[in-house]
Amino acid sequence: MLNEQLIKPSPKLILASNSPRRRQLLRDLGLAYEVRLREVAEDFPPHLVRGEVAEYLARHKASAYLPDLAPDELVITADTIVCLDDDVLNKPADAAEAVAMLTRLQGRAHEVFTGVCLRTGDGREVVFSDQTTVHFSPLNRAEIEHYVATYHPFDKAGAYGAQDWIGMVAITRIEGSYFNVMGLPVHRVWSELAALGALPAQHSS
Rank of each mutant, 00 (worst) to 15 (best):
P11M: 12
A198V: 11
I144A: 04
S205V: 10
E192K: 15
Y151H: 12
D86S: 09
L57W: 04
E111A: 12
P46A: 08
E42T: 07
T150R: 15
E39R: 04
H203D: 14
V189Q: 05
G51P: 03
L105G: 04
R23K: 15
T132A: 10
A142S: 07
T172I: 01
Y147H: 07
R21I: 02
A109K: 08
V116D: 03
G176T: 08
V112F: 08
G183I: 09
P46Y: 05
E175T: 02
G123E: 03
E125F: 08
D79E: 01
E39L: 02
D43Q: 11
L57H: 05
K156L: 07
Q5V: 15
A62H: 05
V189M: 06
Q106A: 13
T172D: 07
I14W: 14
F154L: 14
S10H: 15
L139M: 15
A100T: 07
S204D: 13
R21V: 02
S129R: 04
I174E: 09
I171M: 03
T80K: 06
L26S: 03
A195V: 10
T114W: 03
A201P: 10
D79N: 02
I166Y: 00
E125L: 11
V99P: 06
V82W: 01
L25D: 10
E42Y: 10
T103S: 07
A149P: 05
K156I: 14
T77K: 01
Q202P: 00
D68C: 12
E42H: 08
A198D: 10
Q131D: 06
E73S: 05
G123R: 06
V148Y: 02
L196F: 13
G197H: 13
V134T: 03
E52F: 03
H152S: 09
A41Y: 03
L48T: 13
V127P: 04
W190M: 15
I81D: 05
G30D: 07
I7W: 12
Q163E: 11
G167D: 06
T172C: 05
A159G: 00
V53L: 03
C117I: 05
D43S: 13
R22T: 06
T103N: 00
A162K: 00
P92M: 02
C83R: 01
M1L: 14
E39I: 08
T132N: 09
A96Y: 09
L48H: 06
A142I: 02
Q163T: 03
V75I: 08
A16P: 02
I171L: 05
D122G: 06
V181K: 00
A201D: 13
L29W: 13
T133Y: 02
